[in-house]
Design a binder for these strands. Structure first.
Length: 837
RNA sequence: GCCGGCGUGGCGGAAUGGCAGACGCGGCGGACUCAAAAUCCGCUUCUCGCAAGGGAGUGGGGGUUCAAGUCCCUCCGCCGGCACCA
């Protein structure tokens, strides 16, 4: 790795100001509402054992710059940080070593905190939260109780992955290609187990609708819309031949009902058992067993060929009384719609594939537009061979047949969502205990609020018991309790909450982190919410944001929070790739360690480089040479302000081991910085820079803001080299612009300039538009759209004069010679374009 | 397959429909130095030309416009998401 010489003593400056900020609590946010508030939030990290990587500080730097900028603009800024600390790795480590997950977690948090602090972020550390802290998860449990009481939490038997080899429940991501990803066991299958679910589907419509209220990128909103997956259609009942039972299907195309030539039930559909004839039973059972081994992912990915089995039963098409066969096939999912479909092979690609494979009839009921084949046509057309709706265009046909079905009790209009209820329980130790008990007499009983927090029991062995129950089932003492309702014997719930739980509401706890009476005080919530800017990785575009929005809406409905949406503006930072352009990973050996970067170049250089690489939202590769570039820039800033001659005394002080503060005191201000009046040119440069940096910050254009400051420095250095002074009236505003980006250097130079107060709350400089008005502008002369010359003219020169000047121009005359002028376009202060032929 | 985003020098990237390539990296040349490093100054899209100057150029093709990286159509490629969703 090429090394660059240290450009300035960041190694003394940075720790100095970090301790100053900590000792003075410089960034403590006050809850008094005198100033306008600005709540700027980072997605808090899971403190992994590996420590911070360079991806984390990208978003954190962006928010930190804005937080500092907003403070300088007079806002009361809330900018907190905390830890999403429940999770699997600490539990896995506990299983292997017996170390309590709380110990591992505490250690990892300490590492993360040290690394985050070494970058000089202006968090209000008095508001730090940790989701594993009982004082925190007490309120996670409390919110669960509110959900439970509202009927939004319920238990159900749900198929989960069971590994016979591990004797344990596996998470979806632990199963790959039908094998246990941890130990390679092959006997893995889905087994129904009792689970807790949250009724997020009850909020599907509002989660969809309220996307209108937020300022997020279109792509994220679209992802959420797709995830919720609302579709309108109808439910239709089909009578089963020779049986009282009916099959209800959901379809978005009720207008194709006349083309239904068979039906398909999902293999898991409860009616399968009932309708299957004896002759088909063996085949049906074999098929159902095979299907149970496949996850839904396998079913979709591996199913190139359609498979299925005839049940032997028939259904009656309600519109024409046709008898149609009932099949089972795994291309129909039990979890979507009603788990059963009417198959219209002529107008559905999947049904057509299936019908062709099993020689089922294909009946055209939608006429495709001229030139298109009607078989396999899935778009809107005109109904044919369809009784009462024949001749109607698709939308009208849908409507009419739905009304007809409704009048006869055969069906009704229906809306379906892809979104499913949220599987909220985990068969794990290291999560929030679910605060309910199971009583033989009273059933499921919530704990009273006074019993919170419900703590995790101390355990020696974190492995799950062979019974397939969660590890907590082994905590026999903890397990036995009294029923809060009847006082009789009861058992505690052994499932715990998923990692998502703690992150669903942490932004609210930051507002009032120590409150023992409530999860957040009402007046504080009202003052600080909503979050004005939320920055984090795109990997949370769907789940975390959807879950958090859901909880927020429930709390809103209960009157606990004042806004329908929690996050006004959301920005996703892009990924930082390794220097080879590949995703950073240990195995590739391309991981950049922030500790090393800070040691070599300093925190300010790291911050600046992360912002200079490119637009925040883009994916971009790390470059060591790139960071050397911004490091050199900071060195230029340093040399712009300090007296080079005093550096010798400084070096000597360092050499004899003087304390940092004392050594830094020997650095003197550059003699070029004087109380002189800036020249007109300097004025213009300064005000143009202020305007550009301010505008860029408002638009989060960090990379271009840094470019503008580089231009300022380059031009100013040239001036100084030519013997010009660097007037204080110019130097100070520039430093104020740079301070949010490189705060340590900012503070040090601010002090050097003689200020005693921190630069963090110094007012942001204003620019004077009058200074920016140019007296002379460069205009461009074009002939037939091609640039031929550029000349300086007086600003505001009127069209006639500008045109005249163009025609008088030598270059223009050369290129128009012998041609007829057809048209002249004049844009004052910009250009003249002469069209000639 | 569907949805969304993006294609600009050797590289990271700039450009309210009006000078393409700001700024940085890298490269080349120069100053300073015994020398090197560091620093400072200059040049650096490609191409023809000794030069002056000319031509081409923002993934390919077409269009709108006096003028297109920017707007429209179409094709290709890359990235992200969803994926038998009835």
């Amino acid at each position: 790795m090429a090394t660059t010489r240290k450009q300035y003593p960041f190694d003394l400056i940075e720790p100095k100001w970090q301790s100053h900020w900590a000792a003075n609590k410089t960034f403590r946010a006050s809850d008094d509402g005198a100033k306008p508030k600005f709540y700027i939030l980072d997605m808090f990290p899971y403190p992994s054992g590996a420590g911070l990587h360079v991806g984390h500080p990208e978003g954190y730097t962006a928010t930190d710059i804005l937080a500092r900028y907003k403070r300088m603009r007079g806002f009361n800024v809330l900018h907190p940080m905390g830890w999403d600390a429940f999770g699997l790795p600490a539990e896995q480590y506990a299983i292997e070593t017996g170390t309590h997950p709380a110990q591992t977690t505490a250690k990892n948090i300490a590492t993360f905190k040290r690394q985050i602090q070494m970058l000089g972020f202006s968090y209000d550390w008095d508001r730090e939260v940790d989701t594993t802290d009982p004082e925190y998860f007490k309120w996670t449990q409390w919110i669960f109780l509110q959900l439970f009481k509202k009927g939004l939490a319920y238990q159900q038997s749900v198929p989960v992955w069971w590994c016979e080899g591990c004797k344990a429940v596996l998470a979806n991501e632990e199963v790959k290609d039908g094998k246990c990803d941890r130990k390679g066991h092959t006997n893995v299958s889905r087994r129904p187990m009792r689970q807790w679910l949250l009724r997020i589907t009850a909020y599907a419509d509002r989660l969809l609708e309220d996307l209108k209220l937020v300022d997020w990128t279109e792509s994220i909103k679209e992802m959420q819309r797709n995830w919720i997956g609302r579709s309108e259609g109808a439910e239709v009942k089909f009578q089963i031949s020779n049986s009282e039972s009916q099959i209800t299907v959901f379809t978005t195309r009720p207008d194709t009902l006349f083309g239904a030539t068979y039906m398909v039930l999902a293999p898991e559909h409860p009616l399968v058992e009932k309708v299957t004839t004896d002759a088909q039973r063996a085949a049906v059972n074999a098929y159902r067993e095979a299907a149970a081994k496949k996850s839904e992912l396998d079913r979709t990915n591996l199913a190139k060929e359609k498979t299925g089995v005839f049940t032997g039963a028939y259904a009656i098409n309600p519109v024409n009384s046709e008898k149609i066969p009932i099949w089972i096939a795994d291309y129909v999912m039990i979890s979507y719609g009603t788990g059963a479909i009417m198959a219209v092979p002529a107008h559905d690609t999947r049904d057509l594939e299936f019908a062709q494979k099993f020689n089922l009839p294909v009946l055209v009921v939608v006429q495709a537009p001229a030139g298109k084949e009607s078989i396999g046509f899935v778009d809107d057309g005109v109904a044919i061979n369809s009784g009462l709706i024949t001749g109607l265009p698709t939308p009208e046909a849908k409507q009419k047949i739905t009304v007809w079905l409704e009048e006869r009790g055969l069906g009704k209009k229906a809306i379906n969502y892809k979104l499913r209820d949220w599987l909220f329980s985990r068969q794990r130790y290291w999560g929030e205990p679910i605060p309910v008990v199971h009583c033989a007499k009273c059933g499921v009983v919530p704990l009273p609020e006074t019993a919170l927090p419900l703590m995790l029991p101390e355990m020696k062995d974190y492995t799950p018991p062979a019974s397939g129950e969660p590890p907590l089932a082994k905590a026999t003492e903890w397990l036995k309790t009294a029923c809060p309702a009847c006082g009789g014997p009861a058992m505690r719930e052994t499932n715990t909450m998923p990692q998502w739980a703690g992150s669903c509401w942490y932004y609210l706890r930051f507002i009032d982190p120590k409150n023992p009476q409530a999860f957040v005080a009402k007046d504080k919530e009202k003052y600080w919410m909503p979050v004005d800017l939320y920055v984090g990785g795109a990997e949370h575009a769907v789940l975390h944001l959807l879950y958090a929005r859901f909880w927020h809406k429930v709390l809103f409905d209960l009157g606990h929070v004042s806004t329908p949406e929690p996050f006004t503006k959301l920005v996703n930072q892009g990924m930082i790739l390794g220097e080879d352009g590949q995703k950073m990973s240990k195995s590739r050996g391309n991981v950049v360690n922030p500790d090393e970067v800070v040691r070599e170049f300093g925190a300010d250089s790291m911050r600046l480089y992360e912002m200079f690489m490119g637009p925040l939202a883009d994916t971009k590769p790390w470059s060591t040479e790139g960071i050397q570039g911004v490091h050199r820039f900071l060195g230029r800033v340093w040399r712009l302000f300090v007296d080079e001659n005093s550096m010798e005394a400084f070096e000597q002080a360092v050499a004899v081991g003087a304390p940092a503060e004392q050594a830094l005191a020997s650095v003197k201000l550059s003699p070029a910085i004087r109380d002189a009046e800036p020249t007109a040119e300097q004025q213009k440069l300064l005000h143009a820079t202020i305007k550009a940096v301010t505008d860029d910050l408002e638009a989060m254009g960090f990379n271009t803001a840094i470019s503008r400051m580089m231009e300022f420095v380059n031009e100013t250095m040239r001036g100084i080299a030519a013997g010009q002074p660097f007037p204080r009236k110019m130097a100070e505003p520039f430093l104020l612009l740079a301070a949010p980006f490189a705060p340590h250097l900012g503070e040090q130079i601010w002090q050097l300039l003689g200020h005693r107060e921190s630069i963090a709350y110094a007012p942001w400089p204003a620019y004077d538009p009058a200074v920016l008005v140019a007296k002379e502008v460069e205009v461009v002369f074009q002939v037939n759209g091609k640039l031929r010359d550029r000349v300086k003219v007086a600003a505001g020169l009127d069209r006639m004069d500008l045109e005249k000047a163009a025609f008088a121009n030598d270059k223009v005359r050369q290129h128009t010679a012998g041609k007829t002028v057809r048209k002249v376009i004049v844009v004052p202060d910009k250009l003249v374009n002469i069209v000639a032929a």
